[in-house]
Amino acid sequence: MKSLRFIVPLLVFVVLLIFLWVGLSLNPREVPSPLIGKPAPAFQLGRLDDPARTISEKDLRGQVWLLNVWASWCVACMEEHPVLVQFSRAGVVPIYGLNYKDQREAAQAWLAKNGNPYTTSIADLDGKVGIDYGVYGVPETFLIDKAGVIRYKRIGPVTPKILNDQIMPLIKQLQAS
């Protein structure tokens, strides 16, 4: 009974420590998306370079592809842009850009200046498709499988480490299936 007096506070402290340890190591900005494992929300948007030609998510079925949400006003997009440009050269998967709440001229000028990693960019001028995809912090990147199901989502810039450690293995696995 006497030893219990010292062990109980210690146990409480250890439990508290575990909770704080886990809690503090989580990034509050990374909200787990409810969309993972669900079919990619439908869209039908005009291309950034040619509004008359529309693309829908159905056109992209049958392949593994990346959807990258970007904007010319987005500072963090600049950070990940070289990573995407380099990745697009390897040609592993097509990268489709969702140009989020941007202006066509500004977006096209931004691509001309910084390089264009996108197979095609589509323009989500009013941000409605962005809302359907649960976008809240541009840039965001989705990995979508052959059946059109979202398999992975990255909130914030894609880094070479994330690309190599998380996205690439998943791409290989999805392409093989």
Binding site: V31, P32, S33, P34, L35, I131, D132, Y133, G134, Y136
Partner: peptide, 8 residues
């Protein structure tokens, strides 16, 4: 909203 952004 929760379909898009989760219970958060």
């Amino acid at each position: 909203l929760t379909q898009r952004y989760g219970d958060f």
